[in-house]
Design a protein around this nucleic acid. Structure first.
Lengths: 252, 252
DNA sequence: CGTGCGCTTGATAGAAATCAATGTCAGTGG
DNA sequence: CCACTGACATTGATTTCTATCAAGCGCACG
């Protein structure tokens, strides 16, 4: 576990001792909306940051809830055990909050796996609840984040419930792009951090389908794929497909 | 809208002036965990109850969030607009809280439609947030409810993502039974409140598939269906199917 | 008594899964 | 340096599940 870190983002190694106010994910993170003073308090709360090496679990299904985790940098997938094996329920990057599914029962219902070497902020849940009484705005912020999560899951249910394979993948690509755009990266050119299998699991499709669809999109001139490097050449059209405007499967 | 109420549960007409402490859904509702004193405060908060006639909307997608709603009695479906039309995202009965998906954006992302004449408690959201500062336990309670909602949605995503039609319907029937059991009714014998179309939309299947599956289950001796009256004759086996233990499609 | 809605049932088509083979690349060890 | 291995990905052939298309039934309602 102390081996040199492959594929780490530049500076990742030193990211464990940055304060909230200086954090690049600050705008997206839990403390947003707190004023400077409160920001300091919150900074105190986060006892420790934690490095998670690629492939390691941040928490597993069945473990008791101790912390929520704010992704500081890196990339995670969350997956949930089901009758037919694990299913990926989401991909999370800098600024996102992990572990909220465990609050109701006190036990994690899913697992979070790092897709690259990552750093998270530990947020002890009991301390967080205590702090709510002092800093009410913080509580409102958490509610908002949980509501966003509900919204996200409903969106996923919609995707799985009524979209065809092609449309699902279009949604996926566009959303990945959006996530990068929000963080200041190119929305049309990026490295996928997850395997085809992860994508398939997330979209409710097989790995073969993902492969074929990527090939089809490429033939249509919509994208270019080389391993995990993706370029979206026609994001407009992709977005139209994602919205169901452009008809599916017009295999030229 | 003032016509006599068809299909109303007994007493529904007088249910609008009952206090929280006497509410039959009290054990399942938002104020759970509050002591008697706080219970009274909360009772004050709920300015008004509201009757919703069968087929009417409690709120619609796009409307600003004013209240959360606790189902007092009756039955709702929530549905969400998507590229390919509306999809049912859940069925809610007494004690459940509606509208949480709107908290993040302040705008409802889905619509809640009464499946029978129902009564809900209005919970003005701004007042609720204010009350949090006085009654911290209330805030914890809301967090728990939202987390339950996240959990529920993930469960649905799993169902839609990796189960086959038969298994989905088994899950649906068993869960309906559980919901009734929690409220003191028979878990194996009940009236469906929703149409086949609603079930299909919820499970990501067509109405024809629902019909065929119900027929198949009946032939296998697992259930009896007459219109919307359902009897589960072999809940064990159904549960096994729902859990993926019993093999699917052993058409005798 | 017709009309419409909700539901059922049958025939057929189509999308994606499954099965199977092959290819690519990184890492490992001879 | 090169063969070997295993994870990951692509591609093709076939099967299977569910959607789609189509027809008809039963019941509530005007």
């Amino acid at each position: 576990m102390n081996a040199p870190i492959p594929h780490a983002l530049p500076g990742a190694a030193r990211m464990t001792d940055v304060h909230c106010a200086e954090c690049s994910a600050y705008q997206l993170c839990l403390p947003i909306g707190l004023d400077a003073l409160n920001g300091v308090r919150f900074d105190d709360l986060i006892g420790q940051r934690r490095r998670v090496t690629k492939g390691a679990s941040l928490y597993r299904a069945g473990q008791p809830l101790r912390n929520l985790y704010a992704v500081r940098c890196g990339y995670f997938k969350t997956r949930r055990p089901g009758p037919a094996g694990e299913q990926v329920t989401g991909f999370e990057m800098a600024g996102q909050l992990l572990g909220m599914e465990a609050i109701s029962s006190g036990v994690h219902q899913s697992e979070a796996v790092a897709l690259e070497d990552s750093v998270v902020c530990n947020i002890p849940f009991s301390a967080l609840e205590t702090l709510f009484e002092e800093v009410p705005v913080l509580q409102r912020r958490l509610c908002r984040l949980m509501s966003m999560e509900i919204d996200r899951e409903q969106h996923l249910a919609l995707l799985l419930g009524q979209m065809r394979a092609e449309q699902r993948l279009a949604v996926f690509l566009v959303e990945i792009g959006c996530a990068y755009a929000m963080r200041g990266y190119s929305p049309t050119q990026f490295q996928l951090r997850m395997s085809r299998e992860d994508i398939g699991s997330y979209l409710g499709l097989t790995i073969e389908s993902i492969s074929r669809l990527l090939a089809r999109f490429t033939k249509l001139g919509l994208i270019t794929v080389d391993k995990r490097a993706v370029v979206l050449h026609d994001p407009i059209r992709l977005a139209a497909m994602a919205n169901g405007i452009a008809p599916c499967s017009p295999l030229a």
